[in-house]
């Protein structure tokens, strides 16, 4: 059973003569416990793919199923709730809230999602696994790029989502850090039974993926 499944997704931008067909009949599935890579160059449609998979942008046709639940049959409020409960986002620019310490980034989630978040002990384990235990009382501005990325990963995992969607998580990292993040995502997928989907143009992550899709000019194909 797929954690997330996209079926015959089409997405257009613009009207009439300026209409652009961004995604062509996209079919994609990711399983729990797997790290799935969607690789493509800039402008290939991979960000649009991610926003549709995450319930942020409605496709023109096709369906997205999260745990067998049709995502776009839900209203905005229900999709917000589903994102909060089932999807974790890791973004290219980390986008941590600048005025919250690392610890408080999790506290915000506690305020809007009262149940189902990691227990304090589970959070401690996660912070240890990500090697950021010592950073709990620091603000994002006090962290390096790699540390911010690990905090962003921890924040995405804190609500214990079934699916993690990552947008270019290694864009700002050097090779050593790329390997570290690749290994970490693969480990987390396996150890925590998450379906992790990474859209990237960074081919260095290929070694850690369980399955690899290539997206080019809005068309997707499975390569591994």
């Amino acid at each position: 059973m797929s954690a997330i499944q996209l079926t015959n997704i089409n997405k257009f931008f613009g009207e009439k003569s300026s209409r652009v067909h961004v995604l062509h009949d996209i079919n994609f599935a990711a399983e729990a416990g797997q790290l799935s890579l969607v690789i493509g160059p800039s402008g290939s449609g991979k960000s649009t793919f991610l926003t549709i998979a995450g319930g942020l942008q409605t496709p023109n046709s096709g369906s997205v199923q999260l745990d067998q639940q049709p995502l776009y049959d839900l209203n905005t409020k229900q999709r917000d709730s589903l994102r909060l409960n089932k999807i974790g986002f890791i973004l290219q620019a980390y986008n941590l809230v600048p005025y919250l310490t690392v610890r408080e980034q999790f506290g915000l989630a506690d305020r809007v999602k009262k149940h189902g978040n990691l227990t304090p002990a589970e959070l401690e384990n996660l912070l240890k696994q990500l090697d950021i235990t010592e950073l709990q009382h620091k603000y994002p501005a006090e962290l390096s790029g790699g540390q911010k990325q690990r905090v962003a990963i921890a924040r995405a995992l804190y609500t214990d989502p079934a699916i993690i969607l990552a947008d270019e998580p290694t864009a700002a990292l050097d090779s050593a850090r790329v390997k570290e993040v690749g290994r970490l995502l693969a480990d987390l997928a396996q150890s925590q039974n998450k379906a992790i989907v990474v859209v990237t143009h960074d081919l260095r992550l290929r070694d850690y993926a369980d399955q690899i899709y290539e997206i080019l000019d809005g068309q997707i194909s499975k390569t591994v």
């Binding site: 917000d80 589903l82 909060l84 974790g88 809007v112």
Partner: peptide, 16 residues
Amino acid sequence: LQNYAVLRAQGIPAKT
């Protein structure tokens, strides 16, 4: 707004 967009993406309700 950038932060708010991230929080909205994460499912934080607009009312919060």
